[in-house]
Amino acid sequence: MALIASSFAAGLLFGLGLIISQMVNPAKVLAFLDIFGNWDPSLAFVMGGAVLVSALGYAYAKRRGVPVLAPKLEIPTRRDLEPRLLTGAAIFGIGWGLVGLCPGPALTILPFGHWQAFVFVAALLAGMAIFRFVPADWPQSTFRRSAKEAGT
């Protein structure tokens, strides 16, 4: 029960942060990404503030060793940069740049009542569902095959 309450509190805090910082406004996000146009650097302050507190939280969690409500810290330990990670990030960035919505703001604006947000979230869930059919070694497998075909 405590785990549910703390998750709810974290979600609420996250959503309020997105609203207050105006990250929920796609036009604001696109203005930040438009560095060759009428650039709005506000989002750099959102990222800066968020990363700062996140880093403090991480330092404290590491020093504590175990979380308050769970048996152990579930932190990714991989450090390798493989094609799957970078391909996924590149695809995500294109989608983000097309309308200015990433997953957090897209969900948070649902209660605002814009039909566009519902279309976007439905497509986002479909994209996540499609991902489940992707082989575990893609796109590395494709790179290896084309390297073999090229005779290297």
Binding site: L3, S6, S7, A9, A10, G11, L13, F14, L16, G17, L18, I19, I20, S21, Q22, M23, K28, A31, N38, D40, P41, S42, L43, A44, F45, V46, M47, G48, G49, A50, V51, L52, V53, S54, L56, G57, Y58, Y60, A61, R64, V66, P67, V68, L69, A70, P71, K72, L73, E74, I75
Partner: peptide, 27 residues
């Protein structure tokens, strides 16, 4: 359209959410 103060406040809240989630839930 530059709004650094609400951006920073919102960012601090987002950071606080991730810190809370990591320290309490470990995730």
């Amino acid at each position: 359209h530059f709004t650094p103060v609400p951006a920073l406040i919102g960012g601090l809240l987002i950071g606080a959410s991730t810190a809370l989630f990591l320290v309490l839930n470990g995730r």
